[in-house]
Amino acid sequence: MNLRRLKYFVKIVDVGSLTQASEVLHVAQPALSQQLATLEGEFRQQLLLRTQKGVVPTEAGRALYRHAQIILRQFEQAQSDVLHAGRALSGQVSVGLAPGTAASALALPLLQTVQGRYPQIVLHINENFGTTLCDVVRDGRMDMAVLYGGERVMQGLSFDALLTEDLFVVAPEGTLGQDDEVALAELRDVDLLLPRSSNQLRKHVDQAFASARIVPHVVAEMESSNTLAAAIASGVGATILPVSMARGVAAMAAVELRRIVSPTIEVPLSLCASDHLPLSEPAQAVKAILLELVDRLEREAGLHALH
């Protein structure tokens, strides 16, 4: 098996058509079909199914597609490392930052610091939901991601705890009284707007209520900060967020913030990476900068650093 066949296969799957792939790759379709047949012969598996709309990968094809992306990405990084050995660090590094979290505050400082120290590193920043970020890191399509969670073991991933944040209630004005804190039991009958149940933050909230033997009154599920701020300001309900997210929502609307106590609830922010794919030298340098910025964020925002 050679890398060229893998590149051809990945491109065919990406475009979903042998004809279009041959045009993009500038390879005659009969030759491309022969390369695919050779690849299927090497694996002794059918890799693609032909349909009226083009081609789709089989189960074996999807497995090869995932591994081929990792292999090709590592080879490209190896080429870059060898070519620039002894020179300034260069190459592409991808970092995921879960939106609406303390991680979002790292985006601009990370970009500025990387450009200042390593101008030849091309940084790709992706802001997406945590579960999606875990998937792309596990598959090797992203170097690392900063997101909530990491307490439980996830196959193919490692987590380094960065800091923890206290959970706050964000509610319409006049809802929570004058105290700076609110006991969890006082939220028993409060209408709550929370993320969907698969969200890591929601899992922490549900666990806290379950431990207190309280059933939260969830009236809607949403994850958009703008919609959440508007809904709370209009009196639809309250929400529960880490302090950094709570302050962000409060900046967009007239709301009240109260720290939850009895018990205090904390959520960890973690750095997620593959547990079997080593980071490239440029990625290691970016990781070091991320850790520096987390320290700075902890000092400025009064959060609790863990690493």
Rank of each mutant, 00 (worst) to 15 (best):
L18I: 10
V169T: 05
K53E: 14
S274A: 02
E281A: 14
G54S: 06
V215M: 07
V249Q: 07
P263A: 00
A88Y: 04
P216E: 04
E300D: 12
G16E: 05
L36V: 13
G96H: 02
E127F: 02
D135M: 13
F159H: 09
S280F: 03
P109C: 00
A251Y: 06
L293W: 05
V82R: 14
A246Q: 00
V286E: 07
A283S: 12
S234L: 04
E76I: 08
L184W: 11
L257T: 11
L111W: 04
Q112E: 15
G150N: 05
T164E: 14
L163P: 08
H276T: 12
H84L: 10
Q155E: 13
E76W: 03
T164R: 06
L64K: 07
L110G: 11
S158K: 04
G174S: 04
G149Q: 09
Q284C: 07
T58H: 07
V215C: 05
L176V: 05
V205W: 02
G140Y: 12
V190E: 08
P263L: 00
L167A: 01
D143M: 04
V136K: 09
L306D: 07
T101K: 01
A305R: 15
L269T: 13
H67Y: 06
T101R: 01
A161H: 10
Q120D: 14
Q92M: 06
P119V: 03
A231E: 13
A85E: 13
R152D: 14
E59W: 08
Q77S: 14
H204G: 02
R213N: 14
S22G: 14
T175C: 10
L83N: 11
S33G: 04
S80Q: 15
V219N: 06
L72N: 12
P172D: 09
A288L: 08
Q46V: 12
P109F: 00
V93Q: 04
D160F: 00
G156I: 02
M144C: 07
E165L: 01
E151F: 08
I121V: 14
F43H: 12
G177L: 07
Q115K: 10
P242E: 01
Q155W: 00
Q155K: 06
L147N: 09
A283H: 04
A31I: 10
L133R: 10
G237R: 01
S22D: 10
S158I: 01
A220S: 15
E40T: 08
R44D: 13
E221R: 06
A98C: 02
T132M: 13
S234F: 01
Y65E: 15
T132I: 12
P242K: 00
L192M: 11
L48A: 09
P195E: 03
G237H: 04
L279K: 01
F75Y: 15
A171Q: 03
L3Q: 12
V13W: 03
E59G: 10
V27P: 11
P172M: 00
V146H: 06
E221W: 03
G100K: 01
H217L: 13
R296Y: 04
M144I: 07
A285S: 12
I71H: 08
G174I: 02
A285D: 09
F43I: 04
L133M: 15
V261S: 08
L108I: 12
L291P: 10
F129Y: 13
E298T: 15
D191K: 05
E256T: 14
K287P: 06
Q45I: 02
L297P: 11
R5S: 11
L194A: 04
Q155I: 02
I71Y: 07
L269I: 09
S22E: 11
Y8M: 11
R259E: 13
A103D: 05
